[in-house]
């Protein structure tokens, strides 16, 4: 029990919060056919962090998150710029921007790799869930002990705040969000500001991705933006129910993935632990696979119905 509290409670909680937050936003990304914006943003976090390190010289969380945030906004702005001014298809514009910025990140990283800076690509991709240890979390009593609570890894607090912000956004903006996702022209005619809604959504996606990125790495973020929401889309025809399903799937993936990563090798007799972030994303993918095969609403309905 103590071992679980010290080593697993915080990583598990962080995984669950991140997964559910990303899945919540993912519902709208999937409906708007913008799923890959999460992918693009997670890739450009790397150059953002490297540049912020080169400027500030620290690897402090705040500087890193600021750098990643700026990179995300630059990416979104560049994609829009290229799409509108150059009349390039949206997904192609996205491909141009995020790969180029990623290249900048890798280049700067390798250039400074010689200087012995510990900042590697792997960390960015896999995160370091395993390092979120709660040293004071000994025994259940620690849960109500202010001294022990003060020792909680700061990542937990950060992801919790981000989760709150995302939930508040979805509740307050639910109507314009649905309107702009369903019918942007009509939304514009109602002065529901679809462009502003787009921008806010993408900003929150960036915030969630970056908060998650620091704690759990970027692959889990991309998977969680898409897989639970996509699977939920195949389960129901109601938006409310879809969001509920996506939250359940995210929770399931986080718990099952985390436990599998820690325990599965032991069952097979290996004394190793696998990447928890990787396993969570893999489980999310498997859930989607199951939904694709058995989901009650998996077929298209609205397409091409004419009298």
């Amino acid at each position: 029990m103590n071992e679980f509290m010290v080593f697993s409670l915080v990583p598990l909680a962080v995984s669950i919060i991140i997964s559910m937050t990303c899945a919540l936003l993912g519902n709208f990304l999937v409906l708007r056919r913008q799923s890959l914006i999460g992918d693009a943003i997670s890739h450009v976090a790397l150059p953002g962090i490297v540049v912020s390190f080169l400027i500030t010289g620290t690897l402090a969380s705040f500087a890193m998150m600021l750098g990643a945030g700026v990179a995300a906004l630059v990416t979104v702005a560049l994609i829009e710029l290229i799409r509108r001014l150059g009349r390039v298809e949206g997904s192609a514009a996205m491909g141009v921007v995020f790969t180029s910025l990623f290249a900048v990140g890798v280049l700067l990283l390798e250039w400074h790799g010689a200087a012995g800076v510990h900042l590697d690509v792997e960390h960015a991709l896999y995160g370091n869930l395993e390092s979120l240890i709660w040293f004071e979390g000994v025994g259940l009593a620690a849960l109500i002990d202010p001294v022990a609570l003060a020792d909680l890894p700061p990542q937990l607090g950060r992801v919790a705040w981000v989760a709150l912000a995302v939930v508040a956004f979805v509740i307050v903006m639910r109507r314009p969000l649905v309107l702009a996702s369903f019918d942007p022209d009509f939304a514009a005619s109602m002065r529901a500001r679809p462009a502003l809604v787009d921008l806010l959504l993408v900003t929150l996606v960036a915030v969630a991705a970056i908060a998650a990125f620091e704690a759990v790495g970027s692959i889990i973020v991309i998977a969680m933006f898409i897989c639970p929401a996509a699977a939920a889309r195949l389960m129901t025809n109601r938006l409310g129910a879809q969001i509920a399903w996506s939250q359940c799937f995210a929770l399931l993936a986080a718990v099952a993935g985390y436990l599998l990563a820690g325990e599965a090798p032991l069952w097979l007799g290996f004394e190793v632990s696998l990447s928890a972030a990787g396993m969570i994303a893999t489980v999310a993918g498997l859930i989607l696979l199951a939904a694709c095969l058995f989901g009650p609403c998996r077929a298209r309905t609205g397409a091409a119905q004419h009298d």
Binding site: L31, V178, S181, F182, D183, D185, R233, T236, N237, R238, L239, A241, Q242, R300, T301, G302, A303, Q305
Partner: peptide, 12 residues
């Protein structure tokens, strides 16, 4: 111009 597969009911 609309994705009619959107999860919404007529009343929505």
């Amino acid at each position: 111009s609309i994705d009619w597969d959107f999860p919404a009911r007529v009343i929505d």
